[in-house]
Design a protein around this nucleic acid. Structure first.
Length: 513
DNA sequence: GGTGGCGTTGTGATA
DNA sequence: ATATCACAACGCCAC
């Protein structure tokens, strides 16, 4: 009996929607395409997510938790439509070709991604699909604009300034959001609909010891994300007055929306965010890009466009927009930075918040990124980007690379002599050092006068505060006042070398002509 | 093709 | 509190 059912099921072809960084129902054209295709052709529908069993070695535990929560929520929301999420455990480029045969796949829909890791796997899968005559549909839905259209408008070259990007984008249309309203018919569901083999795994299923996890501050999922979006969009006055540079990197609770993890995972559609912002701004006096909330969304578009149009965007070598800088290597310094024990309390507080909570304010990212690269430690931005990839809930391939290049003055931003002071910068918005005391608790008995520079406290003050520098809290690994000036010289030299190289290039071309 | 204006968010001193 | 300046002087882009 069961065998017969399976045989029948196998005979009916399938449509797959492959969820990737589009972990949502709303504004998901590729998903709707799959649903409609299944219904119209009387095929079976399989919304899948492919989970690499190796993922815990690639993604930090906080982001993994966010992902699992997002998948759980996605499954719940799909079941409301009378389908479900089929989680496939394995490597996409191996598993999906297998499924093509097992499920008699005729049609596959997915979101277009630009992360080279995805693109590489997609190529393998596309080749197999072509042989088997499987139709693949890719939809642009991770960004507001189609980045390739922006590039086309700029005659194929990458806009290197934000204002240039804005002027290009302003001439492009923004599509409306997609809704899925009707229920999926029972006939679209395969016979193994109820199978637990495809259930969303728990963290412990993936070999993560729950007791090692810190409290969850930002829960993943479309439902949470939309709730957060609605909560902030309801604060119309706040939205219209939003100016990023006037928000606080070191408030005890976030001074910005923390929508970024939801947008990076696709729990919230960037296009939905766009339309909601337009709705709030409409008819009201409001701030403008680059500082406005809309401006923040456009920064994301800017980096996505640059990432789409630039080879090796996440590397220094072979990256046409990236100034070549002879960064040094110091694994001890890198580790001290990553673990929040540089001896600079503000830097350490930020890095510890990042590791614990998976989110830090944009300006806090500026502080620690500048410190790691051109400011103090003279370590490559690629190293920093890897640490951020591990810790950030909102890790996003092109934004991470783009922002790291910005802060290291490798691309987009060039005033390398503007160096953030690990002592002065935080004081502007937190004179008392409350943020430091929260995340570097060993210093919480330090007098305000020394909280940003505890090494300056007299020994008896250190002892009275119960934390002697070099014992309870590390000594500074570098002297900022000295080293940032040396680094500035190195930056000047790197820029000079780069300029000379550039000046040579047109000459060479002329000779070969 | 040269050049001046400008660039999301610096620091520290001085008025 | 807030503004301006020196610091040393970047690259992109529009004109």
């Amino acid at each position: 009996m069961i065998k017969a059912l399976h045989k029948m099921a196998a005979a009916v072809p399938s449509v797959i929607h492959w969820f990737r960084l589009d972990l949502r129902i709303h504004d998901n054209l590729a998903l709707r395409n799959a649903i409609n295709e299944a219904e119209n052709r009387k095929y079976l529908l399989r919304p899948i997510y492919v989970l690499d069993p190796d993922i815990k070695n690639k993604v930090g535990v906080n982001r993994l938790r966010f992902l699992i929560q997002s998948l759980q929520d996605l499954d719940i929301n799909l079941r409301k439509l009378n389908t479900r999420l089929y989680v496939i455990r394995g490597k996409a480029d191996e598993k999906i070709p297998e499924l093509f045969d097992e499920w008699q796949v005729k049609y596959l829909t997915q979101q277009l991604d630009i992360d080279p890791e995805y693109v590489e796997k997609d190529c393998v899968i596309e080749k197999v699909a072509e042989k088997k005559d499987i139709f693949i549909v890719k939809r642009v839905q991770h960004t507001v604009y189609d980045c390739n259209s922006v590039l086309k408008k700029n005659n194929g070259s990458v806009p290197l300034t934000y204002q240039k990007f804005l002027s290009l984008a302003s001439e492009l249309p923004v599509k409306e959001c997609i809704e899925i309203k009707k229920q999926i018919p029972d006939s679209s569901n395969p016979s193994d609909f109820e199978s637990h083999d495809y259930d969303v795994p728990s963290l412990s299923d993936l070999g993560i010891d729950d007791s090692t996890l810190v409290a969850c501050k930002y829960a993943g999922g479309e439902t949470e994300g939309l709730k957060r979006l609605d909560m902030y969009m309801a604060r119309k006055d706040w939205v219209c007055k939003f100016e990023k540079p006037n928000s606080f990197p070191n408030s005890l609770e976030p001074s910005t929306t923390v929508l970024s993890p939801y947008i990076s995972h696709g729990c919230v559609s960037s296009k939905l965010f766009y339309h909601k912002l337009k709705e709030v701004e409409n008819g009201r006096k409001h701030t403008e890009p680059p500082v406005s909330l809309m401006g923040q969304l456009m920064w994301r578009e800017f980096y996505y466009t640059a990432g789409t149009g630039t080879e090796n965007f996440d590397k220094m070598k072979g990256n046409s927009v990236c100034t070549q800088i002879p960064w040094g290597k110091n694994d001890e310094h890198l580790k001290a930075w990553a673990e929040g024990r540089t001896g600079y309390p503000f830097v350490d507080a930020i890095m510890r918040q990042l590791k614990q909570e998976g989110w830090i304010h944009h300006l806090a990212r500026h502080m620690v990124a500048c410190f790691l690269t051109r400011g103090d430690l003279w370590i490559s931005w690629e190293q920093g980007a890897k640490v951020f990839e591990d810790y950030l809930l909102d890790y996003d391939w092109s934004l991470n690379a783009g922002n790291w290049m910005w802060l290291s003055a490798s691309a987009f931003f060039y005033k390398y002599f503007r160096v953030y002071s690990p002592v002065a910068f935080g004081k502007k918005t937190d004179k008392e050092g409350l943020y430091i005391k929260k995340y570097v608790p060993e210093l919480n008995k330090y007098p305000v006068a020394f909280i940003y520079e505890p090494w300056k406290a007299p020994k008896e003050v250190q002892q009275r505060a119960g934390c002697v520098i070099g014992v309870g809290y590390p000594k500074r690994i570098v002297d900022h006042d000295k080293i940032h000036k040396e680094n500035m010289q190195k930056m000047a030299a790197a820029y000079k070398a780069n300029k000379e190289k550039k000046a040579q290039r047109p000459l060479k071309r002329k000779r070969s002509d």
